[in-house]
Design a protein around this nucleic acid. Structure first.
Lengths: 242, 242
DNA sequence: AATGGGTGTTCCGTATCGTGGAACGCCGGG
DNA sequence: CCCGGCGTTCCACGATACGGAACACCCATT
């Protein structure tokens, strides 16, 4: 492991997470470095264009360069751009928050979102992550991966009393999802937050993304779920290539 | 300058720019490193979660982590989220491509875009950059900066025969823009691509962003420009805080 | 006006880290 | 079967980064 690279990237991550400009001393403390090291790294990041020093306060903030680089990553994902009309349609029909998620390791990443017009919604952020075994989009993705791509034998972390942690239960759940063609979340990640999702498949039948609804349990009653599930599956089919 | 950090970030930039997975040898050549160094950096980036090695080809590709970090940068920019309805409206009225741009140094960065429905458009990408002195949004931004924030004494790089490169001419042009409240681009960056833009001001009168239209010269005739300019300025006012 | 505390920045001897070239195993093509 | 090119590993050594001290500056307090 290249230690200096790790320190520099950790510093960038810290600036992104803190969300406000920082001085050298604060940056050093946040990252666990000596002040002169933090200063040297910030200067290097500045020379490379990733941060800039604010003229009148001397503090450092991120430039748009990370976002630009990141934009290139997401821009290559056709699904993220093509999904928008279908997500809008689904949001209009259900009036609930629609997510588009990708699988990365054991987590899902929210790459796109249409928020519900209801004032009460479950908070989520584009770029945010969730444990795949706990959310509807995550379970939809896990269910439609090649057998070697998912380690279903390990015990998963519990987040609520509803979280599926036992490998046998998870395998059974993923089997059900494969049969039904959709997944549901009943407060498995955050209490009171429910969801329903379906996988977006490529020509080989592998899930490359998942589309889903989420929101408060009160609105995700059985009758509503029964009405919405086919809409979510139709949206996923619309976006699949098969 | 921390050389190892520089090498690692240059490698990430290269992966973002190339846009396809790469092997160790290709990465080494693209960045100008020895193969074993490139391998070590890729392994470090992988451990840190920025790249992943594709199982069956052994090649490395970027993960979504850069995009996530970048999303946090852009998410804090209120203007980027709030501008969307106004940009949609302007796009509907004019049927031309609408950009939202920020100034970074001597360049503008396109942070949001609504594409024209016309099949013929000037190509641009979210996350892309343009030289500020050559494009309408860039000149609108330069014109409304504090005097110390812009070095107008240096000779600017020419891109087309229309590019304003002489400092005296540029200063005069920025004076005009301040008076009129909008800027135009007549093929100053790319031939045949015209544009009109207005600055989005903060309470102190400083341009924090710019909104503008761009497209082929054929559609940006004087009559159309005359009709569109007030619409662009109204959109900019709509988004300004004053 | 003087003082103290905390900041950002610079310096440099030293220790740690990263280098680069060779070697190896694997794979695919001829 | 052989060869070329790949990815990966190894390690002596030199380049790089470290960290602690010192310095200058700024602001608040007395």
């Amino acid at each position: 492991m290249e230690k200096t690279l790790a320190k520099g990237l950790t510093l960038l991550e810290t600036l992104a997470r803190l969300g406000h400009p920082v001085g050298v001393t604060e940056a050093a403390k946040a990252v666990g470095l000596q002040k002169s090291n933090a200063h040297r790294l910030l200067r290097s990041l500045s020379e490379l264009g990733y941060v800039r020093q604010i003229a009148d306060t001397g503090r450092y903030e991120l430039t748009l360069k990370l976002w630009e680089m990141g934009s290139r990553v997401i821009a290559r994902l056709d699904i993220a751009t093509e999904a928008t009309p279908t997500m809008r349609k689904l949001a209009a029909l259900t009036r609930e928050t629609v997510h588009l998620s990708l699988l990365e390791g054991d987590e899902v990443v929210y790459v796109h979102k249409i928020d519900s017009p209801h004032p009460v919604r479950a908070y989520s952020a584009i770029g945010g992550r969730a444990p795949a075994h706990c959310v509807a989009t995550g379970k939809a993705l896990l269910a439609f991966q090649p057998p070697d791509a998912v380690d279903v034998s390990k015990i998963r972390k519990p987040f609520t009393e509803a979280t599926i942690t036992d490998p046998i239960d998870l395998r059974r759940e993923l089997d059900r999802i494969r049969k039904l063609g959709h997944a549901v979340n009943k407060g498995e990640w955050r209490e009171g937050v429910f969801g329903v999702a379906a996988p977006i498949l490529d020509a080989s039948g592998r899930a490359v993304a998942a589309i889903g609804l989420s929101g408060p349990q009160e609105r995700f009653r059985p009758k509503a779920m029964k009405a919405w599930t086919p809409l979510v599956m139709a949206a996923a089919r619309d976006l699949s290539r098969a």
